Structure formats: C-alpha cells, structure tokens
Amino acid sequence: MEANRNILVLLEEELLINAAIAAVLVARSQRRGRMKKRKRRFWTRPWLMRRSLHGQYEALMSEMAMEDHTGFRNFQRIDPELFQEMLVRVSPRIRKQDTRMRRALDPGLRLAITLRYLATGDSYKSLEYGFRVANNSISKLVPEIGAPDDGGVFQDCTLRDALEKGKLGLPEPAPLPNDDQPVPYSIVADDAFQMRSWLMKPYPHRQMTRQQRIFNYRLSRARRVVENAFGILAHRFRCTLGTFEQDPKTVESIVLACCVLHNLLRSRYPTVANDLMDGEDPDTHEVIPGRWRKQEALTALEYLKGNNTTKAAKGQRDYLCSYYNNPVGSISWQNNMI
C-alpha cells in the first residue's frame, strides 16, 4: 500500500510539471502570433512617398504657375516669377545634402512650405497633409527659412529699455510747425500702454472736454497709419493673427521674414496694396476703410494693470492738446469729426 501511495504522488508531480511546461509553450506560441500580426514600422509613411505625384508643390503649384497666376499669388502671396527669383537667391543657403537614409527636400519645396505657413498660419500637421512632408521636418525647415499680452511684452523688451534710458538715438526735441516750444518725439499708442513722454496715448473716454476729444481724434488719425501697416501685414501673412507655438527666437525669425516679404511686395507691386489701405474722403475727411479691415482682425491688446503715467507725460499730452486746439496747430475739419 505504501508503495502504491508513492507511485500516485510521483504521477501527480509529473502531471503538474507537464501542465506547467504546456502553459509555457502556449504562452510562447501566443506571443509569436502577436508579433507576426504586429504591423511593420515604416521609416516614413507610404503616402508621403507619393509626394512627387500628389504633393501641393509638385502638382498644384506647377499647375497654377502655368494656368492661374492669380491662384498662385493667393496661395503663396507672390507671383510665380518672384517665387523663382527668391528661389534662386535662397537656394544655396537652404539646400541640404542627401544622406544614405533619405533624399533631402528640394529647396523649392522648402520655400513653398514656408511661404504657405506665413500666408495662412496653418499648423505643421495640416501642412504635412498638403505638401506630404512629415510635420517634424516642417518644424525644422520653417525656422531655417524664414503668452503675455503685447503691452506686457513691450514692458520687458529692449526697445522700451532703450527709450527709458535715452539710448535709442531719437532726434532731439524740436518745435511743432508754427510753434517755438521744443517737443520730444514720441510713439503713438493706445490705451494698452502706459504713457510716457516718449509714448502718447488718448485721454480716458469718461467726461472728456471738447479739446480732449479733438486731441484723441488727432492721435487716432496718426495711429491709423500704424494700424494700416500691421493690418496689411496680417492680411497677407495670416500666421501673425494667431498665437505662435514656436520658441521666441523662431517667432522673431518668422516675423522678420513676414516684414521682409511685405516690403518686397510693396516695392515690386506698389499699386497692388493701395486698395488694402484706408483712404480719406477729400471733401468730408471721413475714413474709407481699407480692404484689410474686412478680414479677420488682429487680436486686441489687453490693458496693462496699474497707472504709472509720469507728470512729464501728462504735461506733454496737455501741451499737445492745447496745440491741436490752437489756430497754429488745428486742421479745418477737426471740429466736425468729434
């Protein structure tokens, strides 16, 4: 009997061992099955490889360059001829070398993607689908070619520091026309900024006198020139309308690129932008809004907290107010505009 019990124990242990081995083999088999079913990871997505057939640069832009210059200009903000001229100039700087792993992007494609980003402000992911270039590549090429409110940024920028310390190189104070009192040169601003002797802003709108309303009108009339400059820039390069997601150095390059292209277009096609600008009726002097005002506008500035306006700044504003309401500094229609 004892011998039989020992045999049964051995058989039970052997069964347990065999069951454990079987479980391990089944687990290994299932793991191999999952690995076979797992999709192969591509170095690049297959549809990106068909860029030469369906990419916006290779297909769409080529068609528009031959058939529709207006469409090309709307897409890239410049004519095909100017695009080619720019490409010749920047190609040596933006051309990359091929590697054993992949071919470098064509300089024309790199320029086209950058111009399209400046024109629309589309995300890199969105540009990826149109141009069939991986968004991580676009995030690198745009800076190569190419948050606090604005008032707060101005508070901390080097321009303000230079103005405060008198190191910007502004001309010396000079008398206004038909006057003998030297007045400092100043930046024309709105309520988002804190007033200084070198930065003039309107009077608060509550309980203004007639003279103060005239000053505000004259200041607004001068500021309209600045509004047109920024408005037309944003109308052309819509990346400036939203919030930049890049680091500050990249944003600086993007904005400078927009300014350079804006000035280039203005010098090459001086009459094209005329209908974008505000006009003024020669008889009534009413403002005729430019076409840029009918589009999406720049985000309004947020007001700075606190009131650090200096006595000198208030005194200068009051002096200008008096000048604009005096016969030597007034304009004939200003009383009709308030």
Rank of each mutant, 00 (worst) to 15 (best):
D68F: 02
T99W: 07
I78M: 07
W47T: 07
R95N: 02
M35A: 12
W43C: 01
I145M: 05
D122A: 10
A162Q: 15
Y57I: 13
R132P: 01
M64N: 01
L111I: 12
F42G: 02
T99C: 10
T114H: 08
G152D: 07
I138H: 02
M49L: 15
L109R: 04
M64D: 02
M35T: 15
R95I: 12
I78K: 00
R38P: 00
S52Q: 15
G121P: 03
F131C: 03
A134E: 12
K39Y: 07
E144V: 05
T99Q: 08
S126K: 09
F131R: 00
N74Q: 11
P92M: 13
E58D: 14
L82G: 00
S126C: 10
D156M: 05
G130F: 11
S139N: 07
P46N: 14
A65P: 00
W43M: 03
A112Y: 10
P46Y: 15
R103P: 02
S62Y: 01
T99K: 08
L118K: 05
Y129F: 12
T114L: 09
M61S: 09
T44N: 08
I113R: 01
R93M: 13
N135Y: 14
R73W: 11
V142F: 01
F75S: 10
F83T: 01
R100F: 04
P148N: 07
G146I: 01
H69G: 07
G71E: 09
A104L: 06
F154N: 00
I113P: 00
Q76A: 09
L115Q: 05
T99A: 07
M49V: 08
T158P: 00
K39N: 13
L159M: 14
R34H: 15
P92Q: 10
R103W: 03
S139A: 12
L53K: 12
A134R: 04
A65G: 04
L87M: 05
